[in-house]
Amino acid sequence: MQEPVFNARNNKYVLSEGLDEFFSGVSKAYRFVGQYFRQAFKPPFHFSEVVNQCFEIGLRSLTLITLTGFIIGIVFTKQSRPALEDFGATSWLPSLIGIAIVKALGPLVTALICAGKVGSGIGAELGSMKVTEQIDAMEVSAINPFKYLVVTRVTATMIAIPILSFYCILVGLMGSFVNVSTQESTSFLTFFQNSFSTIHFLDLFTSVVKSIVYGFTIGIVGSYKGYYATSGTRGVGKAANQAVVMAMFLIFIEEVIIVQISNWIRFF
């Protein structure tokens, strides 16, 4: 009979291989997040690197966000029109689109695109730096690699993704307007006024908070997976892949939690 696993100090598993790995992974991730908050507010601040990373993130995702946001606007309007026509409520179309895009689709779609484009990029870049000893090279040159590589990237995603989310919202509404204007003679100004008529400050605030949380998630997950990449080039690929999967999974969970919290706030 196999010996029961009980003692980590003797290289034995405390629970089981899978559970031990899971809990040690959670603890490592918790320390990584803690280190971000400890280092983010301590000088020196690498502002120019944060700005560089913001441009990188923005430029890396802009085309895809423009295309996706515009198509979502058109398709969502096209799909919603027949249902509203049944009730003779097509005049509510801009409001419906406004609510859907501002409150949910804009930030969520942007975050998912950035998780794919930016998260994988960060994971692969840091992973490659790790396996080629570039991170060690920084450390032996008395440069704090966590501060220079991780803090700047996570801060940049927290700044860039809310901006990209609002860009996505505007492009989505433009797409919707293009579809509406082919069917009805609605002016640009009227469409936008109607779109935002049912949007309150709390909705916009929630969207901003959501985007910041998504940005943090994408940056920290990508950095974490890259920073601890192992096993050469295979490890780099794995880090990039895991960065996307993990970030997307967490974004969906965060979406549910933030919507629930904002509904409670609205209720009170």
Partner: peptide, 20 residues
């Protein structure tokens, strides 16, 4: 430790140049 590292040079096997 960082102050000491400034006085010690480390040449890596892979050179570890920052490729970006």
């Amino acid at each position: 430790l960082n102050a000491l590292r400034l006085r010690v040079g480390f040449s890596f096997q892979s050179s570890a140049l920052y490729d970006s």
